[in-house]
Simulated scan of single mutants.
Amino acid sequence: MRVLLVDDHPVVRAGLKALLETTEGVEVVGEASSGEEAVEKARTLEPDIVIMDLAMPGMDGVQATRRITELGLGAKVLVVTIHDEDEYLVPALNAGAAGFLNKSAADTDLVGAVEAVARGHSYLPRHAAALLARRKAQDASDHKRGTDVLSPREVTAIELYASGFSAGETGKEMRLSPKTVEGYLARAKAKLGLHNRRDVVRFALEAGLLRAEDER
């Protein structure tokens, strides 16, 4: 697993690197101290995981996350920040982040967060589901995005897909063909106005179909 560390504080990068280097199969392939440098190194080094700080001079972590996601290289961004999720979680997810971890928990949770994101799962703070639900409740169009518009099988397909299952794996769980599962997912996403896995994960959290990683 190739990791790019992005933080404007060398001491923080050194600490995160020390934590990661104790884990078998994890290689820190590069470091960046700004958003601009992060985007360029993501392009040239093609890491599997980018550990992203948010508060940096110039291009901030949210902007850098969006740029890296738009590169289409398949790198997954895990935001590791001192900032509170109440203000930064939703912007980070909207920018394409696959996970969000507070630096205060990095010494115990960083490796697990990296492994979860690498497996295709989301990794979010304990109160993420409640926070996103509150934000959803403030949305005037909330009633149009509930699970009540989905069939039971569409709900199951969305739940498994949001948990990181492929169409084939979901089909095995539901005892259906992958093509049938893809049909359920396509109809569900069309009903809910969702476009990609990131949208589905966010909806599943908001709807209570998916729990934050550290609540599992």
Rank of each mutant, 00 (worst) to 15 (best):
E40G: 05
F203I: 02
E70G: 01
L150P: 01
R134C: 06
V77H: 10
E159N: 13
V3H: 03
R126M: 08
V80K: 03
R175W: 02
R13S: 01
G168I: 02
A167W: 06
G168C: 00
H121I: 02
S33G: 15
A42I: 02
G96R: 00
H83R: 12
T22K: 15
S163P: 02
S34Y: 12
S163H: 09
K189A: 07
Q63E: 15
R198Y: 10
A97P: 11
E31T: 00
R2H: 15
V149Y: 07
V6A: 03
G193Q: 05
K172R: 15
L5H: 04
V62N: 04
D7A: 08
E159M: 12
H9Q: 15
T22L: 12
S177V: 06
L71N: 10
L192T: 11
T69A: 00
S177K: 15
D109P: 04
E173P: 03
G193C: 05
D107R: 10
T170R: 07
L5K: 06
R43V: 03
E37W: 01
L176E: 14
G25H: 13
E24Q: 14
A92R: 04
G72P: 08
S122L: 04
D139E: 14
Y88N: 13
R66L: 00
V149W: 06
L205V: 11
V90K: 10
L185H: 03
R202C: 04
H121L: 10
T180C: 07
R145S: 10
P152F: 00
L205K: 12
G15L: 13
K76L: 07
D214L: 04
A133Y: 11
S122G: 14
R67Q: 13
D148R: 12
N196C: 01
M1Y: 09
D60Y: 12
S166L: 06
G30T: 06
S151Y: 07
E27Y: 08
R134T: 09
F165H: 15
L209P: 13
A188D: 05
R145V: 07
A55M: 13
G183Q: 07
A204Q: 11
A204H: 15
A118Y: 02
M1V: 15
M52A: 11
A137Y: 07
L93S: 01
A162N: 14
H83Q: 12
A38Y: 02
P178G: 12
V28T: 08
L185T: 03
L89H: 09
E21S: 13
G25I: 05
A106S: 13
V50G: 07
A190M: 10
L210F: 04
Y184G: 11
A75L: 02
A32G: 07
V117S: 09
A64Q: 04
E70T: 02
G171Y: 08
N102C: 10
E85S: 05
K136V: 03
T23G: 05
V28Q: 05
I49T: 02
L16V: 01
G99W: 02
A190L: 14
D84I: 05
A204S: 13
A18H: 12
A157L: 13
P10R: 13
R211A: 06
A106V: 09
S104M: 04
L101P: 06
V201W: 01
R216T: 07
V11P: 09
V28I: 09
H9I: 09
T65P: 05
A75M: 01
S166I: 14
A75Q: 00
Q63K: 14
E182V: 05
A130C: 02
H83V: 00
P125Y: 11
D48V: 08
K179N: 12
E159A: 15
V26H: 08
E115T: 02
R202G: 01
S151W: 03
Y88M: 07
